[in-house]
Design a protein around this nucleic acid. Structure first.
Lengths: 150, 150
DNA sequence: TTAGATGCAAATCTTTTGCAGTGCG
DNA sequence: CGCACTGCAAAAGATTTGCATCTAA
């Protein structure tokens, strides 16, 4: 599952990574990162908040949101989407996947012939029905735009 | 891109599909489905609402939400996620993808060795940086549960 | 005729923002 | 000490719900 060694390695390098990124090392950030480093559960901001609450009773949910976003922007965390709250609809039921522009949010369809052969992996006790692939990138329009900036 | 023929085919079969699903055919539903059938833009509920407004000035956003959800549950539409509002975080930055239980929302990591060879497809003017695969299914815990229910 | 659908308004939830106070470097 | 960070409260969005009214079948 989640090797203890791996958790330790992630935590050990955390202060240095913050320094490298020019981020101050605070209790809140350490606690939040620790929660994420110790789990494979992919918690929501709310869940992260609840997980750090015992340790930092005065932390605010807004801080959790800010820190998660910060970590994500610095590549410390991955953001995983679940459709649960996403709400983008598509009437094209044929086999295809999506290109998502990380800059402007535009979504386009892509055919991915190679995906046909992509068998559901060893999914343990999960019974897989189908899968979606999201290719992240920057669309032509955004790429040709002057400045980037978030 | 989106062949006129395809749009027509989708719209032509719509009444029958509603009947088959035991859904009443209303102006609102037809207009909403038509918007989705004519676009590849993957609109949000809000965008769908605005698109049907000229035709049905008195439609409410709540109806759009209800109808989209209904269509999705009946398999008329795909729901595409974008992370933009999803907010599930993961500190595992290594190559892996995700299993999502459609029943309870649980997310698990999966290694997908075959995905390594999955090249970014012909993405037009999109420059792809990375991709995520979400395998949908039902987890063991949910599968062994008595009733299903939404 | 009537079960199912809509529209409205209010309630919920999630996420973001502004700002004053705090603490890391 | 100064600037970045936090906490709070309020704002802004997104989505859902209850209910009276309407309408497709």
């Amino acid at each position: 599952m989640l090797a203890q060694k791996q958790v330790e390695a992630r935590m050990r390098s955390f202060p240095e990574r913050c320094r490298a990124a020019g981020l101050k090392l605070t209790h809140q950030r350490t606690a939040i990162f620790n929660v994420l480093a110790c789990t494979e559960r992919h918690p929501s901001p709310e869940e992260v908040y609840e997980a750090v609450l015992p340790e930092l009773p005065s932390i605010s949910l807004a801080t959790v949101y800010k820190v998660l976003d910060l970590f994500h922007r610095h590549g410390f965390l991955r953001k995983v989407s679940t459709e649960q709250q996403a709400a983008r609809y598509d009437a094209n039921l044929g086999p295809h996947h999506h290109l998502l522009c990380d800059r402007c949010g535009r979504i386009e369809d892509v055919a991915v012939p190679a995906a046909d052969t992509l068998a559901a992996p060893d999914a343990g006790d999960f019974s897989v029905s189908h899968f979606d692939i999201i290719f992240h990138g920057v669309c032509g329009a955004c790429r040709s735009e002057p400045a980037g900036g978030r």
